[in-house]
Nucleic acid binder design. Structure first.
Lengths: 231, 231
DNA sequence: GAGTGGTCTAGACCACACA
DNA sequence: GTGTGGTCTAGACCACTCT
C-alpha cells in the first residue's frame, strides 16, 4: 500500500531534487499539471507545495514563465517578536519591571518624523527598566501618540508594563523594526549597571494602525543578549 | 455587481473585525462553515484566509477547539538573509571583497561543537573583508567543513567570495542564526578601520545539509550597519 | 462520540506575461 | 493569442481533541 500523497511529501521530494541538484539553480522545473500527473495527485496539491516553497524563497514563480529554482535563494528567517515578559520567562528567569519616568512632553523632531506627526507634538514619554532575576535586562524608551491612544493617560504603568498594555489595548496593523548595535551612553550604562561604551543590542520599533502611528520605542538590551532564529 | 469574494478580502475583513475589537482577544470566532455561509464562498476560501492569519500569529486554531483571536499576538517578522553583495549594492554602493587569509587548520573546540564535529577536526579557515565603496563594511570569519564540501580546496576565493560560492555549490537545508552586539577587538577594529571597543553588529550562522554541517561563519559589521524589517 | 480544522479532488475560470 | 500559475468551488474524508 502506498501512502497517500500530501503536499508535504511533494514539497519534501522537490526540496530533495533541488538540494541534490537534480534540478539546478536557475533551471525551469516542470509545470503544475505535469507534476500532478507524476505524483498522481490534483494540481491544487502541487500548487500548495510549490507556493510555499516560493514563499520561503527556494523557487521563483511567474505566470506564463513557470517555476524556476532560485539562483540566489534569498533565505527568509522568521523572527518571533515576543512580549518582553515571555522573553525573560522563557529562559527560566523571573521577570519584573520598573517605571522610571513618565511625562507628557513635546517629542523631539526625529521621533515626530518617524511617527509622521507634526513637529513638537505632545506625546507621552515613558522610560522603564525590565529585569531578569532582579538584574537589569533591557531599557525601554518609548513615545506614545496621544491622538491614537488617548486612554493611555489613565493607565497605571507601575503594575502593567507599556508593552503589554499597548498590545492589549491598541492593536497595530503593522510596524517597522530595525536592529543595530551601539555603545552604551553614560545614562544607559548607569541604568543597566554596565560599563560606559559596552556594546548594546538595540531594537527600534514603530507601530501603526493603518496610517496612524501608535508608538515608537527603543529597546536597549544589556550585553549578553542574543537574538536567535532558524532559517 | 458585487466583487468576487477572494481569500484576501475575507482576510482583510477578519483583520478589521479583530483590530476594531468586534472580536476581542481570546474570543472564539465562528467556524469555517459559518463564515463561508456569511461570505457566500466555499469553505476552502475561508480556510486559506484563516490559515494564513494563524501563521502570522493573529489567531490560534485547534481542531475541535475552533479559532480564537490571539491574546498575545506574537508577531512574526520575516528577515531576508541576503547575499552580502546585494546588501551593499542595494544601498547604491560599489561592492568588493578581499581574501585576508586561508588555511587548513584544526578548528577550535567551540567551532567543532557548534558544527557537531569531533574536536580538533581539520577544516578550511577563511577570513575576508567586504567593502562598500572601498570602505570596510564587514569582516567575515568562516570555517568550512571539508567532509561535506571537499571541492572547496580547489576554489580561488580571490575572485568569488566564499558566501556566493557556497550558496551556489553547497545548498543547505537549514541554518541557525544569532544576532548580537559586541565591542570591537583590536584585530577587528584594525581591519574595519574603526575604534577599538566600537559597537559591532554580529551575525553568527551555521548552515546544514540534513545532519551534516557545511559552514560556520561570523560576520562583524562596521558601526552604522542597520538591519531592517517589517512586522 | 462529536465537532472542528486539515487536506485532497476534479473541474473551472481568470490574470498575467510572454511571443 | 497562448501558456502558466492563482484562485474558487463543492464535495469528501481524515485527524485531532474535547467531552
Amino acid at each position: 500500500m502506498s501512502e497517500r500523497v500530501t503536499w508535504q511529501s511533494i514539497q519534501a521530494e522537490i526540496r530533495r531534487r533541488i538540494s541534490e541538484r537534480e534540478w539546478r539553480p536557475g533551471e525551469l522545473i516542470p509545470g503544475e499539471v505535469l507534476l500532478a500527473e507524476e505524483f498522481g495527485c490534483a494540481r491544487a496539491t502541487v500548487n500548495r507545495a510549490l507556493r510555499q516553497l516560493a514563499e520561503s524563497g527556494l523557487v521563483e514563480r511567474r505566470r506564463k514563465g513557470g517555476t524556476h529554482v532560485s539562483r540566489h535563494p534569498v533565505r527568509k528567517a522568521v523572527l518571533n517578536i515576543p512580549i518582553i515578559r515571555h522573553q525573560v520567562e522563557q529562559s527560566g528567569s523571573l521577570y519584573s519591571h520598573k517605571l522610571i519616568s513618565r511625562h507628557s512632553a513635546r517629542a523631539p523632531k526625529t521621533i515626530c518624523k518617524t511617527m509622521m506627526l507634526p513637529a513638537g507634538k505632545k506625546q507621552v514619554h515613558l522610560k522603564s527598566l525590565h529585569f531578569s532575576d532582579e538584574r537589569p535586562f533591557m531599557f525601554e524608551d518609548r513615545w506614545v501618540n496621544l491622538e491614537t491612544v488617548p486612554q493611555i493617560s489613565n493607565v497605571d504603568f507601575e503594575r502593567t508594563n507599556a508593552n503589554e498594555w499597548l498590545i492589549e489595548h491598541a492593536l497595530f496593523t503593522h510596524g517597522d523594526i530595525t536592529f543595530s548595535a551601539a555603545n552604551a551612553s553614560e545614562a544607559v550604562a548607569k541604568l543597566l549597571d554596565i560599563d560606559v561604551d559596552a556594546a548594546i543590542f538595540m531594537i527600534n520599533r514603530v507601530t501603526w494602525n493603518g496610517l496612524d502611528s501608535i508608538t515608537s520605542v527603543q529597546l536597549a538590551y544589556a550585553p549578553g543578549f542574543i537574538m536567535q532564529t532558524r532559517i
